[in-house]
């Protein structure tokens, strides 16, 4: 069991998304909603341009957690809520904080921030130390 305390912050992870990355993610996740790659469609819907998949932001938060906890731990629970949109070329900063510790697990609070430091995604995770089934 590693030395983790309530209040510990995870090293921040910064992602700058390109439209190409959105298309790659659409293919990898089999999510072809047009709002994520069709500029004209996004404008029609009232956005300045295509928007980042919520689940891609969730994937960034997942990467934040798994890089922090390392290969000797696994994530049992993970949840995210989407609060605001993010856009290509605008840095998305992923943050995490330890909110509770137990004998072999920790609870994390997770969030993404846009360049104006507005929270665009909120989440939680339960990390279990030790081997998974």
């Amino acid at each position: 069991m590693r030395d983790v305390e309530v209040g510990d912050r995870l090293p921040a992870l910064v992602k700058v998304v390109t439209t190409e990355q959105l298309v790659r993610y659409a293919g990898a996740a089999n999510d072809y909603a047009r709002i994520h790659y069709d500029h004209a469609h996004a404008r029609e819907r009232g956005f300045p341009g295509v928007i980042v998949h919520g689940l891609l932001k969730a994937a960034f938060l997942g990467q934040l957690v798994t890089e922090w906890c390392g290969p000797d731990a696994w994530v049992r629970r993970f949840s995210v809520q989407y609060r605001r949109n993010d856009f290509p070329a605008q840095p998305i900063t992923c943050h995490g904080r330890v909110t509770a510790t137990a004998a072999d697990s920790v609870e994390l609070e997770l969030w993404t921030e846009d360049p104006e430091r507005q929270v665009t995604t909120k989440g939680t995770a339960t990390v279990v130390f030790g081997p998974s089934a």
Binding site: A28, A58, G62, F78
Partner: peptide, 21 residues
């Protein structure tokens, strides 16, 4: 392919957390 799209350089033997999507 999923890891490359996210930019998450983990092992190809284990799916990343949000692969359920």
């Amino acid at each position: 392919r999923f890891r490359a799209a996210v930019g998450d350089p983990g092992p190809d033997t284990v799916a990343p957390l949000t692969f359920f999507a």
